[in-house]
């Protein structure tokens, strides 16, 4: 938002940066993490691509080799795109992809709707209150994700807290089925990822120049107009960062649909898991992984772009 500050500070930082490390240490500092990531991040990724192009066979490991010796002694490379065609043709995969995106998208919107006023409220609080509120938002993020999902199992079960409460109030006579429904999955995702939405929003709203809001009000803009024309555009980077932090992991979520959604919840992370661990169809699981990655590369790049811009503004 303040482009004038970026070019002024960045080049000088680059030029003078770490000159004392530029000597013999430079190679080592780069090489160690670089090699680690190549070995444990890049190569595994290529193995997944390789297996996604193989054929599922009953053997150990359960996939065919891509390179084969033909009868006349020539090396033959056989790439099978069948697994990808299968993903495209079989309704289950196609629909599961769309469903995952739908669930993640709706959850992101609801997180934004709850998280935005919360972040705004935290910014507007007094410094002491602000610290306490921030800790309250961060605390669940540090406690076990799995256990927080488990907590909802107790609330949503047929004999659970919510049903007991509703019956006690006389609002319902029979327990409503809530656990193992899509509703539970939505609730679990919103609950688990809400802090991820609030924190980037908070960081962004905090930098907002309140004078602008007062100026808009002084010039006669109604609060809603001020919000839509000043606050919202200026906090857009925070909205995008927070939304991607919710949307991307929510799309590939496995634990929540498995524990809260039960057998009839279809999300891509869960499908990949069961394809691999229950059906032992490694090539199809690998193809699902590659497709999911391609599906998420675009928002990932977008996110990095936003983040780089934010870092630029900060310096």
């Amino acid at each position: 938002m303040k482009p004038s500050t970026v070019p002024a500070s960045t080049p000088s930082l680059r030029q003078s940066s770490g000159r004392y490390l530029q000597t013999k240490w430079k190679g080592l500092i780069i090489a160690v993490p670089y090699l680690w990531l190549v070995l444990f991040f890049l190569i595994p990724f290529f193995i997944v691509i390789k297996i996604s192009l193989a054929e599922s066979i009953i053997a150990s490991p359960p996939f065919s080799s891509l390179l084969n010796w033909t009868e006349d002694g020539a090396l033959q490379l056989s790439l099978l795109f069948d697994n990808y065609a299968y993903l495209w043709e079989d309704e289950l995969y196609y629909k599961t992809y769309l469903n995952s995106i739908k669930v993640a998208f709706i959850c992101t919107l609801i997180c934004l709707f709850i998280g935005y006023p919360m972040a705004y409220g935290i910014v507007r609080a007094t410094p002491t209150q602000r610290n306490i509120l921030l800790i309250l938002v961060i605390l669940p993020f540090w406690t076990s994700f799995l256990l927080r999902v488990y907590a909802w199992m107790g609330i949503l079960a047929d004999q659970g807290t919510l049903n007991n409460l509703l019956i006690w109030f006389g609002l319902i006579d029979e327990p409503i089925r809530m656990l193992y429904t899509p509703f539970a999955v939505y609730l679990g995702i919103i609950y688990s990822y809400l802090p991820f939405m609030i924190l980037p929003l908070y960081a962004n709203i905090e930098k907002l120049d309140m004078n602008l809001l007062e100026a808009a009000a002084a010039l006669g803009a109604k609060p809603l107009i001020t919000f839509l024309t000043v606050t919202l555009p200026m906090t857009l980077p925070g909205i995008i960062a927070g939304s991607l932090l919710v949307f991307i992991p929510a799309t590939g979520e496995y634990v929540i649909p498995d524990l809260l959604g039960g057998g009839n919840s279809f999300m891509i992370g869960k499908l990949l898991y069961s394809e691999f661990n229950n059906n032992h169809d490694w090539p199809v699981a690998a193809a699902v992984a590659v497709a999911l990655l391609i599906l998420l590369v675009l928002p990932m790049m977008l996110y990095q772009n936003v983040q780089a811009r934010q870092v630029g503004v900060k310096t």
Binding site: F45, A289, M300, Q304
Partner: peptide, 19 residues
């Protein structure tokens, strides 16, 4: 490579490392 694990779905990281 250093920023991808932040946005990588866990199932993919797990699967690729196991393989």
């Amino acid at each position: 490579m250093i920023s991808a694990p932040l946005v990588m779905p866990e199932v993919i990281t797990g699967l690729s490392l196991l393989l």
